[in-house]
């Protein structure tokens, strides 16, 4: 009866399209007994640049999109609480927390769409050429590609030089030495072939990782409202914190593959000790304080958002 178009920016074989969106489509098609048909358009096939995806769902260019919230800086200020340093544990639990967080604190930022899953990627880490990073001092003078505006600021604070370049430019820039490395989760090292380009990967001896980024899988509100009640129920059954957790789990699974690949290739996987991590956290504190002040300037309660985010991550991780 109904055809829904899904549009997103990665090829079909990437982690989320292959392990989250495709299974989601299969679930929706079978639970609706074939009355919902979903067409999946990967790699921005329908046109536009990735930052336009969110508005494509909002304005009804397509029915459903998947995108990175950070592609439109300034538009989802409250959700940035999840991008703050040393918050994420694993992607599955943190994704569930993130969906609950938005439902409780930030729904007005998503007016006009129905968020089906709000999720995050696994803990980001440092992938660096040469001897790598084991202490704060090792960061001095490193040229690293920063993934989000908050991490970019963090890198500068830690003594590195943050280079803002698009992700596809990273492999070439690393291989030629334009930059020394990048800050990304294990999952992203696979399409970028990072294990072949760098010698070391640095993680933290801590339940929390350096950073994460936030994503939304969202449906046009009108497309949803136009569905008959029984089909609405199918969509409802495939959205919410549990669906977000599935998206997060896909990230965790592929993170494990990425880490295994780095081990097998003979790269050095460094771990920053618990005491040293404490120094990093201390160095990152001003970033959190700055962010809170920034939110307060916008008339939001920054501290309350940070507290809510941390509490939700803790409770969902303990589950």
């Amino acid at each position: 009866d109904v055809t829904l178009r899904v549009h997103q920016f990665l090829p079909l074989q990437a982690a989320i399209p292959a392990r989250a969106i495709t299974p989601w489509i299969e679930a929706v098609e079978s639970q609706s007994n074939g009355r919902i048909k979903v067409e999946h358009y990967p790699s921005m096939q329908l046109g536009g640049a990735p930052p336009a995806l969110y508005d494509q769902a909002k304005d009804g260019v397509v029915d459903i999109i998947w995108t990175v919230l950070g592609y439109t800086p300034g538009r989802f200020p409250r959700t940035e609480a999840f991008e703050l340093p040393f918050l994420v544990t694993n992607a599955e639990a943190t994704s569930r927390a993130f969906h609950e967080f938005v439902e409780a604190n930030a729904m007005e930022e998503f007016a006009g769409v129905k968020p089906l899953a709000l999720h995050v990627h696994g803990p980001g880490l440092l992938h660096v050429k040469g001897d790598g990073v084991t202490t704060l001092e090792d960061m001095q003078g490193l040229k690293l590609r920063g993934p989000t505006r908050i991490v970019t600021r963090l890198l500068d604070k830690l003594g590195a030089t943050a280079i803002g370049m698009p992700v596809p430019a990273v492999p070439e820039a690393v291989s030629k030495g334009v930059i020394d490395g990048a800050v990304i989760p294990w999952e992203v090292t696979l399409p970028l072939k990072m294990t072949e380009l760098v010698n070391t990967h640095t993680k933290f001896d801590d339940p929390r990782g350096l950073y994460t980024a936030t994503f939304v899988f969202a449906m046009n509100q009108g497309s949803y409202d136009a569905l008959p009640d029984d089909l609405k129920a199918v969509i409802d059954a495939n959205s919410g914190p549990d669906t977000a957790a599935l998206f997060g789990r896909a990230m965790d699974e592929v993170d494990a593959i990425g880490e295994k690949k780095a081990e097998e290739s003979g790269n050095t996987i460094l771990t920053i000790s618990a005491e040293e991590t404490a120094r990093w956290k201390e160095a990152a504190d001003p970033i959190v304080a700055e962010w809170i002040a920034e939110m307060n300037d916008k008339g939001l309660d920054g501290q309350a958002l940070v507290d809510a985010a941390r509490a939700l991550v803790d409770s969902n991780t303990a589950r």
Binding site: D55, P73, G74, R75, P77, R149, T152
Partner: peptide
């Protein structure tokens, strides 16, 4: 008007888009 209404900025310099 959209970019203005949604307070979208650039990544690094954060000037309004």
């Amino acid at each position: 008007l959209d970019k203005k209404a949604y307070h979208e900025t650039t990544f690094i310099l954060q000037f309004p888009l």
